[in-house]
């Protein structure tokens, strides 16, 4: 078992959503610039929100589980 240092608790969460966030943002910028996603189309606009939601949703799950493991 490891000690509950920063390397064990929050650094992985920060790294995951920091580096992962850069990858995700690059994807969003590329598909927008390439006009693969067209925000003027209602269906695509919905998909745009779904994509943002997915990122926040997983971030929320990891933050919640880390907090729960440390406090409950």
């Amino acid at each position: 078992m490891h000690e509950l240092t920063f390397f064990r608790t929050w650094l992985p969460v920060i790294y995951l959503y920091g580096v992962g966030g850069i990858i995700f943002l690059s994807g969003m910028v590329i598909i927008y610039k390439a006009k693969s996603i067209k925000l003027e189309r209602p269906m695509h606009k919905k998909w745009f929100y779904v994509l943002i939601f997915g990122f926040v949703y997983y971030l929320g799950i990891h933050v919640f589980l880390t907090y729960a493991a440390l406090n409950f």
């Binding site: 990858i23 995700f24 994807g27 969003m28 994509l51 799950i61």
Partner: peptide
């Protein structure tokens, strides 16, 4: 739980 980054 780490697949979302490439979904766009």
């Amino acid at each position: 739980m780490n697949d979302w980054f490439f979904v766009p």
